[in-house]
Amino acid sequence: MQDFRYLILGGGMAADSAARGIRELDADGSIAIISNDVDEPYTRPALSKKLWTDPSFTEDDNYLSTVTDTGAQLWLSTEVTDVDAEAKTLTTSAERFGFEKLLFVTGGTPKTIDLEAGERVVYFRSFDGYRHLREFSGRDLNVAVIGGGFIGTELAAALVQNETKTTLLFDDETLCGSVFPPDLADAFHRLYQDRGVHLVSGTTVPGGRAEGEHVALDYGDGTHEFDAVVVGLGIDPSIDLAEGAGIATDDGITVDASLQTSHPDIYAAGDVAQYPDRILGRQRVEHVDNATHMGAAAGRIMAGSGETYTHTPYFYTNVFDFGYQAVGTVSSELQTVEDWQKPQAEGTVYYLDDDDRVKGVLLVNLDGGLDTARTILAEDWPHSRDDLVNRLPEGD
């Protein structure tokens, strides 16, 4: 059995940030990172953004140099079979590890439909999935993207900008209609149409099957054939090992403000962690800003900082010439107050509950304003339109 002061279970961006957080306070403590990925830690957002749109940014540029920068020992393609919280051990198919502090950054696994992954079917999540999908781009092939959320819309934009005939299938009647107010959703929908993406709205794809050199999808009025299919429907948090160890879970691994689980010396961070946000209440956030900030905080906390996690993360997307940043809950089921400098092109959307309290802020093609957005979200009182118009952008 190999013993480590810090053991990090998972190999994504939160793992990289945690190792760096540890090194801020502990220059010598041994760190092991156990990952079931085939790649060392890398930047995940680039898999659906920059690697498709910036020719100067290569696959090698996307790695994070975690081992070189922190001295952590890294195990790849390694499946953990058991975590014993009492004995402070972790078991893989090949060996056992002992730890003083353990951090779960296990992320999640892609949600699936009745369609088997294979040569022409990609459930998008990893660097390996990016490389797989790249094989079908730039060849004027017909590729279907299933899912109208972050990953689906980003992949559809990436593919169509790389000489790929792209069909985007989603269940909203208008693209992002469940997120944006109607006029903004209409503009976003037209943007994709104008860029050549074939949109199939109001559609749920229950499944399909690979048939030789094509994939048949069942939806709408029958069966439709594509050269390849990529599915981006979000993730389910990877909590099985935590549950097996008797650690409390609830749509993720439950942690306190110090990112500690229900068991002493065991922590969780990133996509898998359900944490008490100081402004928004209990959250589980699947975005890079949370992964990096929370991972770094977890590393420092394990190394003895005594801090709590106080960052309220934002999320963002960039597709074509459209980009936004958001904090809190953005849903068309909430009331909205819109404040446009350029209608549907540059401005702010506020999302309010039935008591007129701001629950989310969307910044469309604006620089700055996130700190002010957080301030507004923390104002626990009813807001009128006059209270909100012209408050953003302001600050950093």
Rank of each mutant, 00 (worst) to 15 (best):
E59C: 04
L76C: 07
G29E: 07
Q73G: 00
N62F: 04
P41S: 14
A46N: 14
L90S: 06
F104C: 12
K49S: 04
S35H: 01
S77K: 12
F99W: 12
L90Y: 06
T106E: 09
T106P: 14
R20H: 14
N36Y: 01
Y42Q: 14
E40F: 12
N36M: 07
D26M: 02
A46T: 14
S48N: 13
F99K: 10
I33W: 01
D37T: 10
T106K: 09
A19D: 15
E86C: 03
F99H: 09
Y63H: 12
S77V: 05
I113N: 03
D69A: 13
T106N: 11
K50E: 13
E95R: 09
N62E: 06
T66V: 13
A87K: 13
S56R: 07
F124Y: 07
V80N: 01
D28F: 05
T58R: 13
D39Q: 13
R96M: 01
R20I: 11
T109D: 11
T68F: 03
S77T: 06
D39R: 13
T78H: 01
S48M: 12
R120H: 08
A72Q: 05
I33H: 03
P110K: 09
A46D: 08
V38L: 08
G21C: 10
N36P: 07
T53E: 12
V80K: 00
A46K: 03
E79N: 11
A85S: 15
V38N: 05
P55T: 10
K88W: 00
D28S: 13
K49Q: 11
L64R: 02
F57S: 09
T68C: 04
T58G: 15
V121C: 05
I31M: 03
F57D: 07
E59S: 02
T92R: 07
S35R: 00
K88A: 08
T43H: 11
N62W: 03
F104L: 08
G118N: 03
K111G: 10
D39Y: 13
A19W: 14
D60M: 06
W75H: 15
P41V: 15
T66R: 10
I34A: 09
N62T: 06
D37S: 13
S93M: 06
K88R: 11
T81G: 14
S126I: 03
R120W: 05
G71D: 13
L102R: 09
V83P: 03
G107A: 11
K88C: 04
K88F: 00
K49E: 10
E59V: 11
E24F: 06
R125W: 04
T78A: 03
Q73E: 08
V83T: 11
T66E: 09
T106H: 01
E100T: 12
V38C: 03
I113F: 01
R125M: 05
K111P: 08
G29M: 04
D82G: 12
G98K: 05
D39N: 14
Y123G: 09
W52E: 01
T66L: 09
T78P: 04
A72F: 07
Y63N: 08
D61A: 10
L25A: 09
Y123S: 08
S126V: 10
E40A: 15
A87R: 12
L74P: 05
V122I: 15
D82A: 15
A27W: 06
T109L: 09
